[in-house]
Amino acid sequence: MEKKEFDHLLTTQSKYLKPQALRFTRDADDAKDLIQDTLLKAILNSDKFRDGTNFKGWLYTIMRNLFVNNYRKRGFHTCTLENEEATNLHVENNGESNMRLEGIRTALNRLPRQYYKPFTMYLEGYKYHEITDSLFIPIGTIKNRIHVARKILRQTIS
């Protein structure tokens, strides 16, 4: 799939992530973080998406896996919103989605190399010890670099 086509799908389908992110996190700010992490992971793994696959389902799976792997470790719990509530939360704005997608790509590409590699490996699902073994960097440094990368991305994207 071409980058332009992938970006178009990501832009049009990403608007459906907000209600589900709110169900998972129960918090608007945490939902935004989860959506950003989902979009980043989708961008980083765009080569793994196969034509004919349900794109919205692929994004949802990424989001669910990120939530389960990362967010529950921090003590967040799931919440179920009624369908009517979730529908009311849906806002369609392709311009905003395009800007957000471009902002995420730009921010990710601007991360200093020392933060980029550990952060992208973390988003890809590697555990801290696996990143440590791969990059030959102490685990405390890996955790710090991932934390700093998230902080830089939040400041840049917000």
Rank of each mutant, 00 (worst) to 15 (best):
N69T: 14
I35F: 00
H77Y: 12
P138H: 10
T38D: 00
Q36T: 06
F67W: 02
K48P: 03
D30V: 08
L59G: 14
L22F: 05
D7A: 10
M63F: 02
N94V: 13
K151F: 09
T61R: 06
Y116S: 06
I142P: 07
T132L: 06
L34A: 01
T120A: 03
T53D: 09
L108S: 01
Y16W: 07
R74A: 11
K32R: 13
H8P: 08
Y128T: 14
N144Q: 12
K73Y: 05
N65R: 11
T61W: 07
G95I: 09
N93S: 13
R74L: 08
A86F: 08
I43H: 05
H129E: 12
G103D: 05
D27Q: 06
C79E: 12
H129F: 08
L153M: 06
R100H: 05
D33A: 06
A107F: 03
H8K: 15
K56F: 09
T12F: 11
C79T: 14
L111A: 10
Y60L: 09
Y71I: 06
R50D: 04
Y115T: 10
I104M: 01
Q155D: 13
F49K: 02
E124I: 04
L10H: 04
Q36D: 05
T80N: 11
C79P: 05
E84V: 13
T78L: 02
T12G: 09
R50A: 10
G103I: 01
R154I: 00
L39D: 01
I62C: 06
Y16M: 03
R150H: 11
E84K: 06
L9K: 08
M99C: 11
H8L: 11
R145K: 08
E82L: 10
T156G: 09
P112A: 07
F55D: 00
Y115H: 11
R145I: 06
E2P: 15
K3H: 07
L17F: 02
K3W: 06
K4S: 15
T53N: 10
K3V: 06
K117T: 15
R113G: 11
T120G: 05
Q13R: 13
H8A: 15
L17T: 01
K3R: 14
P118W: 04
G75I: 00
T61P: 03
T11I: 14
G75R: 10
S14E: 00
M99H: 15
I62H: 00
N94L: 15
R74K: 12
A107I: 04
Y126R: 10
R150V: 07
Q155V: 14
Q155I: 11
I142G: 08
D33Y: 01
N93G: 12
R64N: 05
S97Y: 08
N88G: 14
T80P: 05
D7H: 12
Q114K: 15
L34I: 03
K15H: 10
A86T: 08
D133R: 13
E92L: 15
M121E: 09
V148R: 06
Q155K: 14
A28W: 01
L22N: 01
N65G: 08
D51S: 15
N65W: 07
E102P: 14
A42H: 02
F67R: 01
K143C: 14
Y60R: 02
F76L: 13
M99D: 14
F76E: 10
F119A: 03
T80W: 04
S14T: 00
Q36P: 03
K15L: 04
I157N: 05
